[in-house]
Design a protein around this nucleic acid. Structure first.
Lengths: 264, 264
DNA sequence: CTTTGTGAAGGAATTCACAGCT
DNA sequence: AGCTGTGAATTCCTTCACAAAG
């Protein structure tokens, strides 16, 4: 930035910004919908609306991919679908293994958006011998003893972890050792992986907590002018704060001390 | 903040950055684990490692909450757990409804992390009459005709949508009309909601596509020095690009034209 | 005219690095 | 000594607004 970016980015677009990459699938989905309705072209304004972003952002995003689009007209839907697909690597297909076939794993196995767009469920793996051989979403579950063999035979590089948190790290380690370099983690744990391995995390409870934060904020505003943080709703007022600082005068949070009612 | 924080923040900390809010649940989880092991205090360095972030970021994050923590020592685990919980609004409990009890909805209903930390599944709702009354994860499914009544009676403000994409928007509309102001959406659609309603989205297929992007990138680097985007892997080379631009010289992507093989 | 593509401005998040407290 | 809390520097992302292209 500071240095002004002399000319073209050397070896070609080294680096589409992460934020842009994260939005490409959104654009792709919107474009696919247009494509199915046989809409031939779309403006940045329309497409942005369909994807739920603003149009300047969309145009900037596309500018990282190249100069697709025609001024005064818009973007050719089919062409863009192809270009984005290629950029995302969806023109090849990616075998994926799902480890942990509980409720969630089963749901994922049956998820339609999985099969479409280049992803193929290569195997379902579970540690429970009772599951072995049982078909889930039409695919027979295999035992985790064979994990390494499965990964190797199918050339799997993407793994989905849907196990309980307690075993997620060891499953992860085995996947990585077997050659998996991208992991989608549904278990509520921080996974540690060597450099070069990507991990993305999907965490229901985190999302809910973020919503709760905003929800609380709304309630606070709507209620009293600027009253305390949450003026109790049901604050029992009992017990004492876990470890009430060493007394002292440190300027703590909003209203000093209140007991915790932490759920398990 | 900027203004040196004369005394207490006026109306109180107007505005913890979103990025910080999104990490609080991570810290909370790590702290809860420490708490269970009866660890009394923790340094920013240790806690950051457990949460998978760097310690400067963690300290900055905490600084938005107030001055908990003791120089030369670290943070009192229990105290921090409480403060973060309160900040996130987890000291009150939030009734949640889940709409769409298919594979995914059932998985969510049974998800442990749900019940803990202040969230309570108030109702499971599905449009299929055959599901009505059937218990899922111990909770009887109710019919979507009663959606409004359920929301009102239980004072639900958070809704989870796990329906097929096709009906997600209308379910969303009904939830909002009934008074829900926070929505967690698992359906692969962009939901439009009025101002004041928060939507968060969890989308498997988007996460996979982002992984595929990076995966492809790795493959590219590891192979030829800096060659084309993916040098084919299996590119049939057939058919023509959807709408091959009006010829012209616009500097398109990396290697001009290649056919699309888009999956449905 | 319409709409893209993009410099430049503005804002947000991260990281540095150290003053200040314990 | 050790560790937090935070201004300042940096990097990343978004938005503006307009020149260039059809």
């Amino acid at each position: 930035m500071a240095t002004g970016r002399t000319h073209r980015p050397a070896t070609r677009s080294r680096g589409i910004p992460e934020a842009t990459v994260a939005r490409l699938p959104l654009y792709l989905r919107a474009l696919t919908a247009l494509s199915e309705r046989s809409v031939p072209t779309v403006s940045s304004e329309e497409l942005a609306a369909a994807a739920g972003v603003n149009s300047a952002k969309l145009r900037k995003d596309f500018s990282y991919l190249g100069s697709y689009g025609t001024r005064g007209v818009g973007y050719d839907v089919e062409y863009l679908v192809y270009q984005i697909s290629r950029e995302l690597g969806l023109t090849q297909d990616w075998p994926v293994v799902i480890v942990g076939i509980g409720n969630l794993g089963a749901a994922l196995a049956g998820y339609g958006g999985f099969a479409s767009r280049g992803f193929r469920v290569a195997a379902l793996i579970d540690a429970d011998p009772a599951m072995t051989g049982k078909p889930v979403a039409g695919i027979p579950v295999q035992h985790s003893d064979d994990l390494e063999k499965i990964i190797n035979e199918d050339g799997v590089s993407i793994g989905v972890i849907a196990t309980p948190a307690g075993v997620a790290q060891q499953v992860c380690d085995r996947l990585v050792a077997a050659g998996v370099t991208s992991i989608l983690n549904f278990a509520p744990t921080v996974l540690s992986v060597p450099d070069g391995v990507d991990v993305r995390k999907v965490d229901l409870s985190i999302e809910l907590q973020i919503l709760a934060f905003h929800e609380q904020r709304k309630a606070g505003e709507e209620a009293g002018a600027e009253g305390g943080p949450d003026s109790g709703t049901d604050t029992g007022a009992p017990t004492a704060p876990p470890a009430a600082r060493t007394a002292g005068g440190s300027r703590k949070g909003p209203d000093g001390d209140v007991p915790a009612v932490m759920p398990a």
